[in-house]
């Protein structure tokens, strides 16, 4: 596996190799060469099984991380080809010609993240949601809880008490206390 990646590093400008497990490595390549690396791996290195395609939203950096996970049934190893694309007007070359199921992933990513794959079949069709008017639902900045509570009328009548706050009110309403700090854990 290491040899393979070292061999390909130069040609495909591979950076940032992570060996997660002995049989699983993630490599990062520039957007332009991702599809050609995937094709190379499929055609010449025996990575014939397309496991999945996924996307991670790194909203802080303004990037989408696309992942093509390939499996080599002979050596029983996996390579995840990662590439970063801009969040604004996200677009990526389609890989639907390589495997039959890829267009489904691309269709889902178009719906869930708003990444366009020009030329991919049925990429504009609805996949799981119907009549969706908000921003693509898997983006990090889409707040599902807020949306749900504004849209689907949660049953009223729920109220809760924070134990510390409640005890303060009950036992020592006038005493000096620590100002509640920002909850950055939750």
């Amino acid at each position: 596996m290491k040899d393979l990646i070292e061999k390909l590093t130069e040609d495909f400008k591979i950076s940032d190799v992570v060996y997660q497990r002995p049989d699983l490595a993630f490599v990062t390549v520039p957007k332009g060469v991702a599809i050609s690396l995937v094709t190379e791996l499929r055609d010449f290195e025996g990575f014939s099984h397309f496991v999945m395609m996924s996307c991670v939203d790194w909203i802080e950096e303004g990037k989408f991380q696309l992942l093509y996970l390939l499996h080599n049934p002979k050596t029983k190893t996996d390579v995840g080809v990662k590439t970063f694309i801009d969040r604004e007007n996200a677009e990526m070359a389609s890989a639907h010609h390589l495997w039959k199921q890829v267009w489904t992933y691309q269709r889902e990513l178009k719906e869930a993240f708003g990444i366009d794959f020009p030329g991919s079949p049925r990429v504009d069709e609805n996949f799981v949601v119907e009549g969706w008017t908000e921003m693509p639902h898997m983006r990090r900045d889409f707040n599902t809880k807020e949306y749900s509570q504004n849209t689907y009328f949660p049953r009223p009548g729920r109220e809760t008490n924070d134990p510390a706050e409640y005890m303060r009110k009950k036992l020592y309403p006038n005493e000096p206390i620590t100002a509640k700090k920002q909850d950055n854990d939750k």
Binding site: I177, T178, K180, K181
Partner: peptide, 24 residues
């Protein structure tokens, strides 16, 4: 982080909060 201790502390210190600061 239940905060039960805050009431018992005579100074009502923000115990869960500063413990959280240690964690962070």
């Amino acid at each position: 982080e239940c905060g039960i201790c805050t009431a018992t502390c005579p100074a009502h210190m923000g115990i869960p909060e500063y413990i959280k600061a240690i964690r962070n």
